[in-house]
Write a protein that binds this DNA or RNA. Structure first.
Length: 738
DNA sequence: GCAAGGTC
């Protein structure tokens, strides 16, 4: 029997289907499925792994963080433990019955390594297989590619696998050594440890540097003049000079303006907005981030939709649909998707369907597209959002470009030049189905040169330049990709990791003081791990290993040498390093001033119970304390409650919407909040009961009830709502902005 | 209780 090992269950199934000369018999070893068939007269069994089946780790005797000197991890032996027990058992059992093995994992570095991992299990169970190994290299999971690959079997590339192993070892050696050193130097033990890694640390530095720039930013004042004009309809305009740097000049211009303006020029310009390109992973995750779903959650949701057969494989770099993809067949499926049926009919009625193409073309997987129909009722809210996003994007890529018309109007009032304008969509095209982030039309009244219009109101606005904006999670994902940090599959979890470690919070991403301190200390004392250059260098070395120009051992040993130097430098700067981080940690624990004595209230741990509470730095002179929520991350907001005057915090705990509260449980506002929660819960239960009783008419009733629920539970923090007055103008139907 | 990389 010939054993065929691929990277995932789905691939194993497809390979069997493509190669089978007879029917495919599905079987299972425990819970691991395999597929038996005949190829070239020989019995074959195709089985899928679950990605990596082995994980590098240190021997048992290194497991105690306190007793083991972190530097000993630099040269310690690295073992490989089985991380997927069930799969490993299945491989061993099937190997015993096999006469030969074909490795059919993904055609890339990690794929080669995964294949070699599987082989080590195979040989362990059946050493005779060692001389009967072949490799199938296909770059697309299509019948043509797979059969070709099996006709032209090659050898496993030990060099390519070794390159992957070098990455594994280096990541573990650096990550474990420095994580332990930093945690020990700052006395952060247990779940409070501070992590360091080749990808996460440069990412944290990126976020922190941006925050530093923001803090160092010197806002410069400038002045703007806006006016509300009317010619039958009202419309907005602003002074053509834009930003005035000199207040006096601006003031003079403002005073010059009279209550009438004359149109000096009307220009119209049409533009084409091309339809968006097909989704690859990064494109998909950033689009999801733009509708408020974090990359890690979007990746999870997409994975579920993929396993259920509703969308294609969600980890791909490709932005060009393969020729083999039958667009009409997919459209036929999508006809029944709620809300897009008519649009699909419109597309089907067109003669030829020409999809857009992105810049990146690979053949490993197609871009992400919907593979099946699913009804809204069958999915949870967030799943439906993601499914819709994929469906609408797919439809958009088959649609015509949109056309817009931009009207620019120049005017003059009291010798001062004004400008106004607006853009409207003249041909919807893809905008008719992919409405994410679409702007409302800005209609301009009909105006002609020389025409007088009334200046109803003029405004003199004092403003300030703004610091560079923080990274949104989507933006961060893009920047990481540009710098070569992480992979399409790991970036979401790396970002999530920074949240889980308490290095960052919120979206756009804000570093905590602890996060900023760790980033700065690493940059100052271990700069090698703090920039993306380490990854770039590693990539170069891995290429050399895979080309046979150097060996894995040489590369890893050289990396060890560098780490030893870094470690020495860290050791000699231990107190400085710890002081920087402690300052950050302390800053994060400050909640605000104590009502009793004015000193700082900080987050502390009770000696006996280990429970956290808010205590005054003036203790023992001041005995003011407050109890704090037992679970979740506490983020001091630096604001005081307007009802009781105690500091306000944000609490972020797993599986719950973050909430903002003051720390005084007896505050009248808190009582109110608790009552509101109780009421909302009661209403929800009542609603659920009503729904259960009703049980029909799911669509209308469902949507409506969700809306009301969102309204009752989501209370906007006052501080945040006030911070962003932008976009207020957009609410006025005819006002335009330029 | 370490990293990052696959896949569920």
């Amino acid at each position: 029997m010939r054993l065929i090992i691929s990277e995932k269950a789905n691939a194993a199934k497809k390979i069997a289907q493509f190669l089978a000369e007879d029917s495919v018999r599905d079987g299972k070893h425990r819970s691991v499925p395999h597929h038996t068939f005949t190829w070239k007269g020989e019995e074959c069994v195709s089985v899928g792994l679950k990605g990596h089946v082995l994980n590098p780790e240190y021997p048992e005797e290194y497991s105690n963080w306190q007793k083991v000197e972190p530097s000993s991890l630099i040269d310690a032996e690295i073992l490989k433990s089985v991380s997927e027990k069930g799969v490993a058992e299945a491989i061993r059992a099937l190997s015993k019955k096999a006469d030969s093995v074909v490795i059919a994992t993904d055609f890339d570095r990690e794929g080669e390594l995964i294949g070699v991992e599987a082989l080590s299990l195979s040989f362990e169970a059946n050493p005779a297989l060692m001389d009967h190994v072949e490799r199938a290299r296909f770059s697309a999971l299509t019948k043509g590619e797979v059969t070709r690959a099996f006709e032209e079997l090659v050898e496993v590339s030990r060099e390519l696998a070794a390159a992957g192993e070098a990455r594994q070892d280096i990541d573990l050696i650096w990550g474990a050594t420095l994580t332990r050193w930093v945690s020990r130097a700052t006395k952060r033990y247990g779940s409070a440890f501070l992590s360091v890694g080749r990808v996460q640390s440069p990412t944290l530095v990126l976020i922190s540097e941006r925050e530093r720039e923001r803090r160092a930013f010197n806002p410069e004042p400038y002045w703007e003049i806006e006016a509300n004009l009317r010619n039958g309809e009202a419309f907005g305009a602003r002074h053509a000079a834009g930003r005035f740097k000199d207040e006096a000049v601006a003031r003079t211009a403002y005073e010059n303006m009279t209550d009438v303006a004359t149109v000096t020029e009307v220009k119209e310009k049409s533009a084409t907005r091309p339809a968006p390109t097909p989704f690859n992973t990064t494109g998909f995750l950033t689009a999801a981030a733009n509708i408020g779903i974090s990359p890690s959650r979007a990746a999870r949701l997409a994975e579920d939709l993929y396993t259920d057969g509703y969308i294609s494989y969600p980890r791909t770099d490709n932005t060009v649909y393969p020729k083999s993809l039958d667009m009409r067949e997919v459209l036929g499926q999508l006809k029944r998707v709620e809300g897009v049926g008519e649009y699909v009919d419109g597309l089907l009625a067109k003669g030829e369907l020409t999809p857009t193409r992105g810049k990146k073309e690979t053949t490993d997987h197609p871009p992400i597209y919907p593979t099946g129909h699913v009804s809204k009722n069958a999915l949870r809210d967030d799943q439906w959002k993601i499914y819709q996003l994929v469906v609408r994007r797919f439809l958009a890529t088959l649609s015509e470009p949109a056309k817009t018309l931009r009207t620019t109007v120049r005017l003059e009032s009291g010798g001062e030049p004004l400008v106004s304008g607006g853009t409207v969509v003249t041909h919807e095209g893809w905008l008719g189905v992919y409405h994410y982030g679409r702007r409302a039309d800005e209609e301009m009244p009909k105006l002609e040169e020389g025409q007088p219009v009334r200046v109803e109101e003029k405004e003199f606005l004092a403003k300030e330049t703004q610091p560079p904006s923080r990274y949104g999670q989507g933006r961060l994902l893009r920047v990481m990709e540009d710098l070569g940090l992480g992979t399409k599959a790991t970036r979401p979890s790396i970002i999530q990791n920074l949240y889980d470690r308490g290095y960052v919070h919120d979206d756009p991403v804000v570093p905590t003081e602890t996060g900023m301190a760790v980033a700065r200390a690493l940059k100052d004392f271990a700069s090698e791990i703090a920039t993306h250059e380490m990854t770039a260098e590693l990539e170069r070395s891995m290429d050399e290993i895979s080309e046979g120009k150097t060996s894995k051992d040489a590369v890893v040993d050289e990396s060890r040498d560098v780490l030893r130097k870094v470690y020495e430098h860290l050791q000699s700067s231990e107190t400085e390093f710890a002081d920087i981080v402690w300052d950050g940690i302390r800053e994060d624990s400050i909640l605000g001033p104590c009502k009793k004595c004015g000193k700082n209230l900080t987050i502390r741990k009770a000696k006996k119970s280990g429970k956290r509470f808010a205590g005054c730095e003036g203790y023992p002179d001041c005995d003011q304390t407050y109890s704090l929520p037992p679970r979740g991350e506490i983020i001091p907001l630096g604001t005081l409650c307007d009802a009781c005057g105690s500091p306000e915090i944000k609490v972020v705990s797993f599986g719950r919407r973050p909430w903002i509260t003051c720390i005084d449980m007896s505050c009248p506002k808190q009582q109110e909040r608790r009552q509101a929660i109780a009421e909302a819960r009661a209403a929800k239960e009542k609603e659920a009961a009503a729904k259960a009783a009703e049980d029909g008419d799911a669509e209308g009733g469902d949507g409506a009830s969700k809306k009301t629920r969102a309204k009752t539970t989501r209370k906007k923090p006052a501080a945040k709502a006030a911070a962003k007055p932008k976009g207020a103008a957009a609410k006025e139907p005819v006002k335009s902005t330029t």
